[in-house]
């Protein structure tokens, strides 16, 4: 047992990275090329969700959960399974978790209608909308900050990082908070995995998914207004 424990201490994050940064970013780039111009539709759906978060309607809460669930299934099948899994066999184990996240969103958010977007401003709502705004508008611009081609932009609804951050944003703003907690687990874990991957590849801005998790947890733990 002690041998096993001492052996684990000898591993470093890069020992688990199966591919080079060049291969990873070319995968993103080729995926963008293959899907263009569907990124625009994905962005439009994201804008629809954001508008529904800002001005909730009686029907919009269930719609938000349904759209996000559809995005989790699409990203799991189209990106993780068909493309990312070709260079990262661990994605075979991640895909079922993405499908589970979609089922949770549909079950709790769409069918039961247990997640609501608050109309009043609060710290969790501000943090949640900020996270969603980042996922929708700023995250695709990260390549410019990281010194990469914009063709490696990761767009909401197409790639897992902005989808997970957007979902964290929705769940940070949602009420009641105890209904949101179970749905935070999978997007939170994905963001941590992504942070480790990007950090191991020494990508500038690797901290973004980690910061999203911290912001979501802070928002959910923020004391209720009296």
């Amino acid at each position: 047992m002690s041998g096993v424990m001492s052996e684990w201490w000898t591993y470093r994050a890069e020992d688990f990275l199966l591919f080079s940064p060049r291969v990873y970013w070319r995968l993103i780039e080729l995926h963008n090329q293959a899907l263009w111009p569907w990124q625009l539709l994905a962005l439009l759906l994201g804008v629809l969700i954001l508008a529904s978060m800002l001005r909730p309607r009686p029907w919009s809460d269930r719609l938000i959960a349904a759209l996000l669930a559809a995005a989790w299934v699409f990203v799991a099948w189209n990106f993780l399974w068909q493309h990312y899994a070709t260079i990262n066999w661990a994605m075979v184990y991640v895909v079922p978790l993405f499908v589970l996240q979609a089922l949770l969103l549909v079950g709790i958010g769409t069918l039961k209608g247990d997640l609501s977007m608050p109309a009043r401003w609060s710290i969790p709502r501000i943090l949640g909308i900020a996270l969603f705004l980042h996922a929708l508008l700023l995250h695709p611009l990260l390549p410019a900050y990281a010194g990469r081609s914009i063709s490696t932009a990761e767009v909401f609804g197409i790639f897992p990082d902005p989808l997970a951050i957007a979902t964290l944003g929705m769940l940070t703003a949602a009420i009641p908070r105890h209904r949101a907690w179970p749905l935070l687990v999978i997007p939170g874990l994905w963001c941590l995995l992504s942070w480790l991957t990007l950090d191991t590849m020494e990508v500038r801005g690797a901290w973004v998914p980690l910061l999203a998790v911290v912001a979501a947890i802070a928002g959910r733990l923020w004391p209720r207004a009296r």
Binding site: L17, L18, F19, S20, R22, V23, R26, L27, L30, H83, T86, I87
Partner: peptide, 11 residues
């Protein structure tokens, strides 16, 4: 790592 290039035709 070096030969893990997926289906990328260039690589």
């Amino acid at each position: 790592i070096t030969f893990n290039v997926g289906n990328d035709p260039v690589l």
